[in-house]
Design a protein around this nucleic acid. Structure first.
Length: 837
RNA sequence: GCGAGAGUGGCGGAAUUGGUAGACGCACUGGACUUAGAAUCCAGCACCGUAGGUAUGGGGGUUCAAGUCCCCCCUCUCGCACCA
């Protein structure tokens, strides 16, 4: 007799068209069920999905499907992060239009996602390059401008020469462009900034609320990136009069060491340098130094191999407490854009200052002494950075230095010479991009009125599609009169539009909320829908966005909250974050240049979508990287076939039962009892692992164990009504438990089992504690903590009975022969340990 | 240097509260079926050995009992890094 073979292509096609026709995974916020919003980071429509996407979306789909079965009203949407540079580059290369290229890719990739059977609510699909989407972003820009959270500034910017655009600090990785790895150079430009630093404190503080929900290391990375330091800003007077300048501000985390200042170091770019060196006989030498340092490559300049160098400016500052002259130096290690671009030099208590002082023969003044010790400056071989008592510090002498930090700041503040402050490493976010394929910045430049915001009623400022992209990569917008030329909204005179577009990270900073009311044309976010769905309960994506996208989204959530778009209690976008690992091949990242790319489409063709999904989830825990293995996917395929065969071969004996529906009464034979027990154990394990712990690999392993048990049990089980019920229930359980992972084949088997309704509407099975109980348990027997044997005893045996059974064991007797038993430890139902010597 | 994570068979990985280390899978070995292969099924599979012993990066400790808790050290991965 030939059995029907598993044919994934036919089965998957059948169920996918059914889901499509029924709009099976559409959801609404009008529901009595508890809500659950699961979201995977939406893709850039680059052309084809790759294995990383498959892994990411398969994880999300298991969460979505299992939560649905567990009784939640699940929102699981998908969209496209559709603006960006690759579209322009591809358009130039293939002589097409970025829009055409992008929409074609979306069509391809949407079909690929559908071919994988993900349970998205496709009615909420969005693409960020559509005016219906980016119009809201332009509105946010105008509102932020009004609130003073958007501003324009000329400053040296990160410029990628290959991408022809500026980059935010977060987009510069080791001095290289995050996208194309080109060396980033500095360029003076006037750009639009989002004032993310205004939220620095809150972004840092609220990281605390994410603990437990977010991976520790992502929280640490953000904390690091925000980089908050507390200390004081201190104004040193200037010996020489410079017009309009009161003095030089420094920032320090150690105001307690202020009396130890013996010099001050400024960044070569410090705006006062030219004033300070006026009239100094070696001014030209100083200028040469400044030039040399400024022209250095940023990467070399920030290298830790760079030798610390300085030069005296010939000028002096005045100490805020003692009035003493403090020589002003320039240093190649002082950063112009951190703090105030100037640091006080305290060689006795800062290692870098110590080395600088030794190199240039500057005095060392000790002002903190460890309790009960003296420090002699000339004997010191390194700075003393520990705790201690303040000395040589005027009115502060004898004070513990920790108290001194506050006391010094307070005293300075009283005299108007400083105050306690906080510094952030975080910089404001430059959102201007000199590229075409992005959302236009809604601003107009008028010769009379300056930079004028576009009126909200004129939104959207449409990105014109009838332009020819330039082969040199520069934006064609400036050369498009129909776009660039306009009337000033203020005076009506001739004016010019801003031709920069917004960083694409702006679009991805709020898309998760748009899904709540994706089709609403009146408002970006319908309040009742946002209130219901947000925050995202489970967000899933790659760790490469730990800072960029995840920090920007947190910022936007707080801003949108404060502008009234979000309810006041919504401060964080993503309650839980899962950062999935990468899919590697032969230990390395898949890449076209290495020729080690595994194409999901080819794998689906060969094995079917269910197998690809199963392998991606089974190969490794979700957070860890995993190496693609061709024999591994064979194993996944083998397992599905095993389930299929079990079903087909037993079909005649199967009853149309649901999961966990056989009763203790049904399970008369020992095999049936055992199978029923393992069925319930599998439900427990798979439910916990899939639904709570997101350990999909072990959830699958638990079902595999059950299937293995069924293969053994079926030989021994008869055709009594009870045996058939037990076996049928177990079969239903296997199908139900696997359905979030391999939905197509499970739907198919479910319907063949005789069920009319979809498995998606099937509740998650309930396991029964009594069903998992064993008649006899295996107890480990130890002598002095070493395993010496096992013994089967009736479940529920008391301690005395266990001890008796242990002492009667021959192996135990052998190992205790000649010894005195000192103690017997009994763990009920588990183990007996005999302590003897 | 700072911060986070990891280290378990040939490999991916289990072990959720301290209680039989190696579940599940891959690879491998032997066998069955077959003209042969594929597929499938059965058996074996940490290491050394005769009883027994040794094993979770290394070394200490706590405990009747440690992969799990504590201390010290080593290695690897990631992030930040002259941040004042």
């Amino acid at each position: 007799m030939t059995q029907e073979r598993y044919n994934p292509q036919a089965i998957e096609e059948k169920w996918q068209s059914r889901w499509q026709a029924e709009n099976a995974f559409a959801c609404s916020h009008e529901s009595n069920k508890p809500k659950y919003y699961v979201l995977e980071m939406f893709p850039y429509p680059s052309g084809n999905i790759h294995m990383g996407h498959v892994r990411n979306y398969s994880i999300g789909d298991v969460v979505a499907r299992s939560k649905r079965m567990q009784g939640y009203n699940v929102l699981h949407p998908m969209g496209w992060d559709a603006f960006g540079l690759p579209a322009e580059n591809a358009a130039i290369k293939n002589n097409t239009h970025p829009a055409e290229w992008t929409y074609a890719n979306i069509r391809t990739m949407r079909a690929q996602l559908k071919r994988l059977g993900y349970s998205y609510d496709w009615s909420r699909e969005i693409a960020t390059c559509r005016p219906e989407y980016y119009q809201w972003e332009q509105m946010f820009f105008l509102r932020l401008l009004k609130k003073g959270l958007v501003y324009r500034k000329k400053a040296p910017q990160n410029w990628c020469p290959s991408c022809h655009t500026v980059l935010a600090n977060e987009q510069v990785i080791d001095g290289l462009c995050w996208r194309c790895d080109s060396r980033v150079v500095q360029k003076d430009l006037t750009q639009w900034f989002l004032k993310i630093t205004a939220y620095g404190d809150e972004l840092l503080r609220d990281l605390g609320t994410l603990e437990g929900g977010w991976p520790e290391r992502v929280i640490a990375m953000q904390r690091n990136w925000i980089g908050r330091s507390t200390g004081a800003s201190i104004t040193f007077g200037l010996e020489k009069n410079v017009e309009g300048v009161k003095g030089i501000d420094v920032f320090t985390t150690r105001p307690d060491t202020v009396f130890g200042v013996t010099f001050m170091t400024l960044a070569p770019e410090h705006p006062l340098v030219e004033h300070l060196i006026q009239g100094y006989e070696k001014a030209d030498e100083v200028r040469a130094f400044v030039e040399r340092i400024r022209n250095m490559d940023r990467l070399d300049r920030q290298s830790d191999l760079l030798e610390k160098e300085g030069i005296f400016t010939g000028a002096y500052a005045l100490h805020p407490f003692t009035g003493q002259r403090v020589p002003l130096w320039l240093g190649n290690f002082v950063l112009a854009d951190y703090g105030t671009g100037a640091v006080m030099g305290v060689p006795a208590h800062d290692q870098r200052d110590f080395e600088f002082a030794r190199k240039y023969d500057l005095p060392v003044q000790v002002v903190i002494c460890p309790e009960g010790q003296e420090l002699a400056p000339e004997a010191m071989t390194e700075a003393y950075t520990g705790q201690g008592v303040m000395v040589h510090s005027g009115q502060f002498d004898g004070m513990p230095n920790e108290d001194g930090k506050k006391a010094v700041a307070q005293s300075l503040e009283k005299d108007g010479k400083g105050k306690a402050t906080t510094q952030f490493r975080l910089r404001d976010w430059n959102i201007s991009r000199q590229r075409y394929w992005g959302a236009p910045i809604p601003v107009i430049y008028c010769d009379k009125c300056g930079a004028v915001p576009e009126k909200e009623e004129n939104l959207p400022v449409l990105l014109p599609l009838d332009v020819k992209t330039r082969s040199d990569g520069r934006s064609p917008l400036a050369d498009t009169p129909s776009f660039a030329q306009c009337a000033c909204p203020q005076c009506g005179g001739p004016a010019r539009r801003e031709t920069d577009t917004m960083d694409t990270f702006v679009e991805s900073s709020w898309y998760f909320a748009r899904f709540a009311s994706a089709r609403d044309a009146e408002t970006p976010f319908a309040m009742d829908a946002v209130k219901y769905w947000l925050p995202v309960d489970q967000y899933i994506g790659g760790v490469e966005h730990a800072i960029l996208h995840l920090l920007y989204s947190r910022f936007f959530t707080k801003v949108l909250r404060d502008m009234g778009f979000f309810p006041p209690e919504l401060s964080e976008p993503f309650s839980n974050l899962l950062t999935q690992g990468m899919v590697l091949k032969d230990g390395g990242k898949m890449s076209k240049s290495k020729g080690n790319v595994v194409d999901p489409t080819a794998m689906i063709k060969k094995y079917g979508a269910d197998t690809v999904r199963l392998f991606c989830l089974f190969a490794a825990p979700a957070e860890r990287d995993f190496d693609w293995s061709d024999s591994g996917i064979e194993g996944a395929s083998r397992f599905i076939n095993r389930v299929w065969r079990l079903f087909v071969e037993e079909q005649d004996r199967l009853l149309p039962l649901k999961a966990c529906t056989s009763t203790a009464q049904d399970a008369q034979s020992p095999e049936a009892r055992d199978l029923r027990r393992r069925e319930h154990l599998a439900v427990k394990k798979a439910g916990e692992d899939m639904g709570d712990r997101f350990q999909f690999n072990t959830a699958i392993a638990a079902v595999m164990e059950l299937v293995n048990t069924m293969y053994i049990a079926r030989e021994k089980m008869g055709s009594t009504e009870g045996d058939r019920r037990v076996f049928s229930s177990a079969t239903a359980t296997v199908i139900t438990l696997l359905s979030p992972i391999i939905p197509h084949v499970c739907e198919e088997l479910w319907s063949r089992l005789g069920h009319a309704a979809s498995l998606s509407d099937e509740p998650w099975p309930q396991w029964d504690k009594d069903a998992t109980a064993q008649d006899t348990v295996t107890v480990a027997l130890q002598v002095n903590g070493k395993l010496r044997g096992t013994v089967a005893i009736p479940a529920g045996a008391d301690k005395a009975a266990m001890e008796e059974a242990a002492l009667a064991d021959s192996s135990v007797q052998r190992h205790t022969a000649g010894l005195t038993i000192r103690k017997v430890v009994v763990v009920p139902g588990k183990l007996v340990n005999i302590v003897a010597n």
